[in-house]
């Protein structure tokens, strides 16, 4: 009963926004500015019949997931090193601050000089994710109540057991939340990088081409695809993490 109510509520809200969209596009009556939901749906249907579209989705996904995973792994290890060695923290903090404060577009333009267009979205996604995970791990480890660490010291648990049995479960909830937020950032920045550097077989390149040829319904349809992929990816990672964390915590 509750579930069907939820579905009904969601459908009603979705319908409301579709009507608002339809009304706006009807009032403006210019497909170039705001295409109607119907023409967007048409564009989406055309995309679905295009083989190239599926290649673009697949390669964009692979690039962004690669950048994301690299960011999570490097961020995780750097967070541990930062917590363990104050010299590492002192040396790397300015770099971390720089990455956090410089706009992503500046990095994309700068990285265009360094990397091939295929690699650049991976690098940009990595760059967005890594500092977030790094900070989460470093802060999480610093904030663990020392009393639990003393417990491990008294019973001589060893570094590995202390980390996996005590420290990791303490930082995990916050780390999961950060990783999921970072996934959204990776996705957005990765697509932005693709739009600017236009690698072959990429959603970003398709978006840019649609913009150049003023195919606004296509831009809307592609944006819809990007949003759906982002949500699906988040749900998928959430599921994996939940299964994993149940084992650890």
């Amino acid at each position: 009963m509750k579930q069907s109510r939820k579905v009904l509520k969601f459908t009603a809200i979705l319908l409301l926004w579709l009507i608002i969209w339809f009304v706006i596009s009807s009032i403006l009556n210019k497909e170039i500015l705001v295409p109607s939901p119907i023409s967007t749906l048409n564009a989406l249907a055309k995309l679905c019949l295009d083989k190239q579209f599926y290649f673009s989705v697949l390669y964009s996904l692979l690039r962004i997931i690669a950048g994301y995973l690299l960011g999570v792994v490097f961020g995780f290890l750097s967070g541990i090193l930062s917590n363990k060695f104050s010299i590492f923290k002192a040396v790397t903090t300015p770099v971390l601050q720089l990455i956090k404060s410089v706009p992503v577009a500046s990095f994309i333009i700068l990285a265009l000089v360094w990397f091939k267009s295929d690699i650049l979205p991976i690098f940009i996604s990595f760059l967005m994710v890594m500092p977030m995970v790094w900070s989460s791990v470093e802060t999480g480890l610093t904030n663990i109540d020392k009393k639990y660490i003393e417990l491990a010291q008294v019973y001589k648990l060893g570094a590995a057991k202390t980390f996996f049995q005590i420290k990791l479960p303490f930082i995990l909830p916050n780390l999961i939340a950060t990783s999921l937020t970072a996934l959204g950032f990776a996705w957005k920045s990765g697509i932005a990088a693709e739009v600017i550097c236009r690698p072959d077989n990429s959603l970003g390149n398709m978006l840019q081409e649609s913009k150049i040829y003023i195919e606004t319904p296509n831009v809307f349809a592609l944006t819809f695809v990007v949003a759906i992929l982002s949500l699906s990816l988040e749900l998928f990672i959430k599921r994996i993490l939940r299964r994993y964390t149940n084992d650890i915590t």
Partner: peptide, 20 residues
């Protein structure tokens, strides 16, 4: 210890066996 120092994410038995 003065405080219990039990790990909140482990069961009572795991809190003991985790220390060996």
């Amino acid at each position: 210890f003065q405080e219990n120092r039990l790990l909140p994410f482990k069961t009572i038995l795991e809190n003991i066996t985790v220390l060996g």
